[in-house]
Design a protein around this nucleic acid. Sequence first.
DNA 1: CTTGACTCTCACGTTACGGGAGGCCGCAGG
DNA 2: CCTGCGGCCTCCCGTAACGTGAGAGTCAAG
Lengths: 253, 253
Amino acid sequence: MAGYSVGQVAAFAGVTVRTLHHYDEIGLLSPSERTAAGYRRYSEPDLDRLQQVLFYRELGFPLEEITTILDDPGVDAATHLRRQHELLLRRIARLEALVVSVETALEAARMGVSLTPEERYEVFGEFRPEDHAAEAESRWGGSPAWAESRRRTSSYTKADWQAISAEAGELVEAWRSLFARGVAADSPEVTAVAERHREHISRWFYSCTSEIHVGLGEMYVADERFARNYEGVAEGLSVYIRDSIVANAGVVR
Amino acid sequence: MAGYSVGQVAAFAGVTVRTLHHYDEIGLLSPSERTAAGYRRYSEPDLDRLQQVLFYRELGFPLEEITTILDDPGVDAATHLRRQHELLLRRIARLEALVVSVETALEAARMGVSLTPEERYEVFGEFRPEDHAAEAESRWGGSPAWAESRRRTSSYTKADWQAISAEAGELVEAWRSLFARGVAADSPEVTAVAERHREHISRWFYSCTSEIHVGLGEMYVADERFARNYEGVAEGLSVYIRDSIVANAGVVR
DNA sequence: CTTGACTCTCACGTTACGGGAGGCCGCAGG
DNA sequence: CCTGCGGCCTCCCGTAACGTGAGAGTCAAG
């Protein structure tokens, strides 16, 4: 009696039964109960989680990333809402820029003015050269930082890169050892490492404010590529690093 | 000298070389030239087509559908622009609705008011029950028509369904034979069939205006599932049907 | 107690690429 | 002149997020 069957949930949520099976398989959304016959039973909290899943999915997040986002115990509902709000606004801004470019092109067509190739590129400029930056921006906001990064890094020599990666390695090692010793992520010793990390980025890549730094920290746990990297060094290290960055940002402010 | 290499195109378009190879393989975007050594050379028109491809891709269209949309000879650049404009506005409206719901939830959290389950459903109502309709709307606009359709069809008996599909079969057969005889799609004989088709839909499903009808016609060529269905009867039939519907709508208006 | 609608678990198919392997081009440098 | 080495080529296998049955058990209704 209690809870809903797969079919019912699929019907309200507007997804297929297979999709729910899939989410169960990969551990993204497992029904909190099963009947004696093995039928899935979804509770109200399960439905709430499904909403969140569908929200992030609609914005193009990969399911694995959604799993880590939703399973992060340090993030409460309000934080999710703020994050969702920001994501939506960025997305709308992007689409509005496209609307403007389409309207320009329509107007040009209406006037019988055929645009030159350069003009057409300007009109459809949303894609094209800086698109990498646009993509990056849509993921962790701050396109100017990225542009700066690209400008600077293009002139680095092989020796520079070695220096950079050595420095980065030292920082990770510092974090790792503190983590292994059980030092709290928000203790001064650890936030000092976070601060050195921020300075490292500012020196070599772009001026990294504490807000941007926090954004990076969040990414280290949410983004597969980074998380796997740190988790490979020590289990739980990515979260530890993020927490220290967050604590450091709180201190600086 | 003339044209751009894969690497260059990939760089400005913000896609990978592999993606361009893929688009070439499936015939979505084949470079208009190859060098003696077999290197791909992209011309300016190729780049324009790529813009269109990326545009529709960004809005979530499957590549095969993009192929049919772009290869449709009856559609010029201005029509594409108008379509894109509409798609963007719909998309923005959807996201804005989500923003409102997220803001409501945030405000509730800020006030310390914890929402009851019903309220939460209302807040996140964008998904949930009518989501199928929302999905449908975003594809062929007109959610009320769909809701009406769902209400009516739920009470049909097996005999009704047989009658409906027999009627539909007769209509397709009428179109097919006229098509085989080479009768022009915009001749009165053919538009009469289109008109009967519109009435058929109005009788059994929802009141189908000529605008909605044209929308359906467009879908018959653009949407894989429908196109394949008609193309299986006779090659070119889906386009023929659409053209007759468009002509009929022009007459009625 | 049977039937039709719903559910279960395999398990293979599909889309839109990612990411190498192994092998040609093409041109700057010794 | 050949020697890298960066870019390009064509297979070809891998992956994500499901679609789509196949074959079998389950459950409410007649």
